[in-house]
Simulated assay, not measured.
Amino acid sequence: MKKRKIPMRKDIVTGEMMPKRQLIRVVRNKENEVSLDPTGKKPGRGAYVAVDVKIAEQAKKERTFDKAFNVTLDDEFYDELIKYADHAQARQKLFGND
């Protein structure tokens, strides 16, 4: 059986290359609205952060997405990111990284 290529993306917080499935995509659209993209198909400029609560908290502390997207985001967005990362991390432990 032929081995499939695994798409890799860079975590914006740590700078580490990881498989795309282990990352959360955050997207900024043309109206400068920033949102989480669980499907990975929303149009706009995307950035990735690891599915790890500690890294999501580090992104909040450093205001990483404010700098990456050149916008000002409120703490609500980062809290939503941390909550989503926690959920996704628990899901990966339960079902694996598939």
Rank of each mutant, 00 (worst) to 15 (best):
L36H: 08
R9C: 03
P19F: 06
V71M: 11
Q22S: 04
Y84M: 01
D52Q: 04
R25E: 02
A50C: 05
M17A: 06
K10H: 00
A68G: 01
E76T: 15
K83E: 14
E31D: 14
T72H: 05
G96F: 10
E31G: 01
V53P: 07
Q22G: 08
Y84K: 09
T14E: 12
E57Q: 15
K10I: 12
F65L: 13
R9W: 01
L23Q: 08
K20M: 05
K60C: 02
K10Q: 14
K20H: 05
N32A: 11
A85E: 03
F69W: 04
A56R: 07
P19R: 05
D37P: 07
D98W: 02
E16T: 14
V27P: 00
K41D: 09
R91I: 00
V51S: 01
D79G: 00
A88D: 02
Q58M: 11
L73Q: 07
F95P: 05
R91L: 13
F77K: 13
V13I: 15
N97D: 14
G46D: 01
I24C: 02
D11P: 03
K60L: 10
Y78P: 11
M17Q: 05
D86Y: 02
A68C: 01
L36S: 10
L73R: 10
K54C: 03
H87C: 00
D37S: 03
V34M: 04
N29V: 02
V34W: 05
R45Y: 07
N32T: 01
Q22A: 02
P7K: 14
Q22C: 02
D75F: 04
K61W: 00
D79E: 15
Q58I: 12
K30I: 04
E57H: 08
